[in-house]
Design a protein around this nucleic acid. Structure first.
Lengths: 336, 336
DNA sequence: CTGAAAGCGCTTACAG
DNA sequence: CTGAAAGCGCTTACAG
């Protein structure tokens, strides 16, 4: 690859002049400019961004840390597309790092990105994975503090990180659902929860129970069942629920996949019953599933935009103000 | 951020010694090693990889270029996860860049990655987008040649790029389906195709027709319809097909989404008929759709592994041998 | 085993 | 308007 020196020699000028022509950072006589551009063309010269970065102390890169095995694939895709668009608009390139169930995985991902001199990082938390890898908020915030770039956390808030975070109110989510169901006259509302070892499942359960309570419906533990997160898991959980013979008339599921599995079990085992099913995520596929599945539409687009805003605002503003940075989103009911 | 000089001062040694301790590139006396590591710890020093890259002429980064609006979201997710794992295993970080329907988008994506000194690039082609942005193979191969790093192309082959590519045989795909259907006794096999302006649609159509021919079934143009790629599009295309009243008994669809939409139309409009439906991609959701949809399972895992092999093999081997690098995959039928 | 020096490819004050 | 020099933070031959 040609360097700036090669170009300068060919054009018969100093390297600094080439730099200035290419960056438009000074007035250059028309004749030298032409000669320089000519030489650039001939040599097919492209500036080495690594050298540029070292000199300027800025890499024009941002990073995103993503959990593996996300239940909603489409979320990853849209998050990535949005963040990448935003990055490109700011003329930055996007690094991507995954973390998984292994112990040090989330911290290492952040450190790798930081070592590559990213200017900012988005960390997407996943409570399910976080339970498996023993996510340690203290260790996490220590790392965030030790590196010197903004880290926006998605779906988790770290107080020591100035609450630079975008959250979903998981409690309100299920609360909205039971509220809706109770007011529509449903009383026996079953709930297929995620494993209750996870915070997120606990919050959702809390919303479910408090929604019932507000409508004077007693919580019946027999209507509650824990499940893993895939379609098959929902299918089996619902089978089990049905076998308890408590005659539920509505069913709230932790996510759309579980709901799809549950719908299948209902279709096969108790097709004569009309059961109102709720999922979470509002996967477009739901329009094509029988029996119908209502869902919660998470404001992905808005929340992602918020993440992006927070990130770039904090990259540009070195003097981070301690204002309220935390943004919380709730989903909307989509009834089918 | 602390630099290597800060560390060396604190430890009372030369910067080169710090470098050697950290890289294990020479024998160091136990006492200096301890002092250096101590200083590293105290200052929370992390080497600046940008400086290291400039010096070593290697950035430990690879890049991937992905089309926006992929029909199969889960493919993006798995491709990214696999490539990222491989990258991490090779101790490399992954850049991601998207291209879209705008004219210069794919070339620019590659150039951006190259300017950031990636050591290798994976380019994932999409024929549908390629039609919209007037993908120009000549321009593309010119760029690939002008940059000096290996570019592995996925789902397209560029001869001037040493055919460093992983392909799907789209023709064989539909050929397999019609072959199967004909031998199972189906004669009126409808086909919801993608827009025939795209190469990929033409290949699939070719496979469809030749499969029929081999089984002495005449191609009936009334059984063919063009469609866009989403669920709704499949729904409408199938409606139209049904309104033609040609009594098709089997239906081959360009992808799973179209098939899902078509299945809905069939469920609603002609529920009494038993129609054998085929999609493409074998989305796991198909197990939960009525009426059943068979599909083609693309060997994603294997093909991605092949991409990764080609990429890292060519990053490490500077003297690219002109051996057969092209790998072609065909999908398998999954009957439901 | 360790230090001093040179250099990776840029940019940018400083001169003129 | 342009050049010469210094320096970003590393690594690595070269000495000793």
């Amino acid at each position: 690859m040609a360097t700036i020196l090669d170009v300068s020699k060919l054009a018969g000028v100093n390297a600094s002049t080439v730099s200035r022509v290419l960056n438009g950072s000074a007035r250059i006589s028309e004749s030298t400019r032409t000669r320089v551009l000519q030489a650039v063309e001939t040599l097919n010269y492209r500036p080495n961004i690594v050298a540029k970065s070292l000199k300027e102390g800025t890499t024009n890169c941002i990073g995103i840390v993503i959990p593996k095995y996300i239940p909603m694939m489409s979320m990853v895709a849209s998050l990535l597309e949005e963040i990448q668009s935003a990055a490109e608009a700011h003329n930055k390139l996007l690094f991507i790092a995954y973390y998984d169930h292994t112990k040090d995985s989330p911290y290492k991902a952040i450190e790798r990105l930081n070592n590559h001199q990213c200017e900012g990082i988005v960390y997407w938390h996943n409570y399910i994975l976080g339970t498996k890898n023993n996510f340690d908020a203290e260790r996490f915030s220590k790392i965030i503090k030790s590196i010197n770039i903004p880290v926006v956390t998605f779906d988790i808030s770290i107080p020591e990180n100035n609450n630079l975070a975008v959250l979903f109110d998981h409690r309100k989510t299920t609360h909205k659902i039971t509220q809706y169901l109770c007011q529509a006259g449903y009383k026996n509302i079953a709930f297929i929860s995620a494993r209750l070892t996870t915070k997120i499942a606990q919050w959702r359960l809390d919303g479910y129970i408090s929604g019932l309570k507000e409508n004077n419906v007693d919580f019946n533990p027999l209507l509650l069942i824990e499940s893993d997160l895939d379609i098959e898991d929902g299918y089996h959980a619902c089978q089990e629920l049905i076998s308890r013979e408590i005659n539920f008339t509505a069913l709230c599921c932790f996510n759309d996949k579980i709901a799809i599995g549950a719908a299948k079990a209902i279709r096969e085992l108790i097709p004569q019953k009309e059961i109102k099913i709720f999922g979470f995520g509002n996967d477009p596929i739901l329009d094509f599933i029988t029996p119908s599945i209502s869902s919660i539409k998470t404001p992905m687009k808005e929340s992602i935009n918020e993440v992006i805003d927070l990130l770039f605002h904090n990259i540009n503003d070195k003097n981070k103000k301690n204002t309220a940075l935390l943004k919380t989103f709730v989903g909307d009911l989509v009834i089918r």
